[in-house]
């Protein structure tokens, strides 16, 4: 069976005044129907850029490599250039939920009007139908008084409610793929738990594929089926969520897990990953993590080992330099 989404050998570069920045290098990922792929990484690791490439939402100074492919539903998104084609994916086949729900709604247009507008663009229906679909969707995501909220502005809603409305809007066009970019980061834990449960229910109900981007490994453990760990534009480890969190091989994944305060194990010391993430302008050659790697092997330290994912166990891929380092500690 072919995948719902397949990203092959994707490089994303930005041309800036200071030079060409490699934001993402040689990424291959796939998502099936009804599956949640989690992407974890720190700020600057290229998680959002990868997701935005799928909708071609990156700014004008972006260049993609020629042999890259983003196959969505048997079509290569990267070859889309006409507005008509792009419209089909943006909000049609693919929807996106952003981190900051206040910034994603237009402040001076009622929520209902925004929901109806996008439905009219993507579906052949009239206004009344669009309105009833929107109100049903608002009810589905657990918003009380959906009719009243439909006629309100984004600022009149609380943070959790806004995020629910955002989810309702993203799902009302019945996309095949949902991109969720840090959808729970701005929320309080109790609200976060509500939103996570909601997203999980909806995935089950509509059988869509989801890419869930977050920096929180706990959230990943709760929602994802597969995980890709990104560092400085490269995937350093990927595999089934159980494998990655319980049996991590790459020193970066291990480092992330050790830096995380665990409420069930208060005696464990918090160990930070030494150093800072390098600027994408001077991206290390060879293994990207070698400048911060605590257990580097001699060749990896000099940057002599190319980045390449190797399958260590069925479905569990680790960067080859990381395998060697991982064995050291």
């Amino acid at each position: 069976m072919s995948h719902l989404l397949e990203v092959k050998n994707l490089d994303v570069k930005f041309d800036t005044d200071e030079g060409r920045i490699t934001a993402v290098e040689n990424i291959s990922l796939s998502v099936d129907q009804g599956e949640v792929l989690g992407i974890v990484g720190e700020s600057g690791s290229g998680k959002s850029v990868t997701a935005k490439s799928i909708m071609k939402l990156n700014p004008g100074n972006t260049s993609y490599n020629e042999d890259a492919e983003i196959i969505l539903d048997n079509e290569n998104v990267l070859q889309f250039t006409s507005k008509q084609d792009l419209k089909k994916i943006r909000g049609g086949k693919v929807s996106m939920i952003f981190q900051e729900p206040m910034a994603s709604f237009a402040p001076a247009i009622k929520i209902g009007a925004q929901m109806v507008e996008q439905l009219l663009i993507h579906k052949k229906i009239n206004k009344d139908e669009a309105k009833s679909i929107s109100i049903n969707m608002l009810k589905r995501v657990g918003i009380a008084d959906a009719e009243k909220r439909f006629n309100q502005y984004a600022f009149e809603l609380s943070g959790g409610m806004r995020q629910r409305a955002m989810i309702a809007m993203a799902l009302s066009t019945m996309p095949k793929l949902l991109l969720a970019d840090e959808p729970t980061t701005a929320l309080d834990v109790t609200i976060q738990a509500q939103v996570i449960n909601l997203i999980k229910d909806i995935i089950k109900e509509y059988q869509m594929g989801v890419i869930f981007i977050t920096h929180d490994l706990g959230v990943i453990a709760q929602v994802a089926d597969h995980v890709a760990v990104m560092y400085l534009g490269s995937v350093v480890e990927k595999g089934p969520v159980n494998e990655i969190l319980k049996n991590p091989k790459h020193p970066y994944t291990k480092g992330l897990l050790q830096a995380l305060p665990d409420i069930n194990n208060l005696d464990a010391p918090l160990s930070p990953i030494p150093g800072n993430i390098p600027s994408p302008l001077d991206r290390p050659t060879g293994c990207v993590f070698r400048t911060r790697c605590p257990h580097h092997n001699p060749e990896g330290k000099d940057g002599k080992i190319e980045m390449k994912l190797i399958e260590v166990e069925p479905g569990h891929w680790v960067d080859q330099c990381g395998i060697k380092c991982g064995q050291n500690g």
């Binding site: 834990v189 109790t190 976060q192 738990a193 509500q194 996570i196 449960n197 999980k200 929180d216 490994l217 706990g218 959230v219 453990a221 709760q222 994802a224 969520v241 159980n242 969190l245 319980k246 897990l257 995380l260 665990d262 409420i263």
Partner: peptide
């Protein structure tokens, strides 16, 4: 406390939902 997402994928949805 129960709302903190657990790092263990096998311990899903034990949150007391408010």
């Amino acid at each position: 406390l129960s709302s903190i997402p657990s790092i263990d994928p096998e311990k899903r949805s034990e949150a007391i939902e408010l």
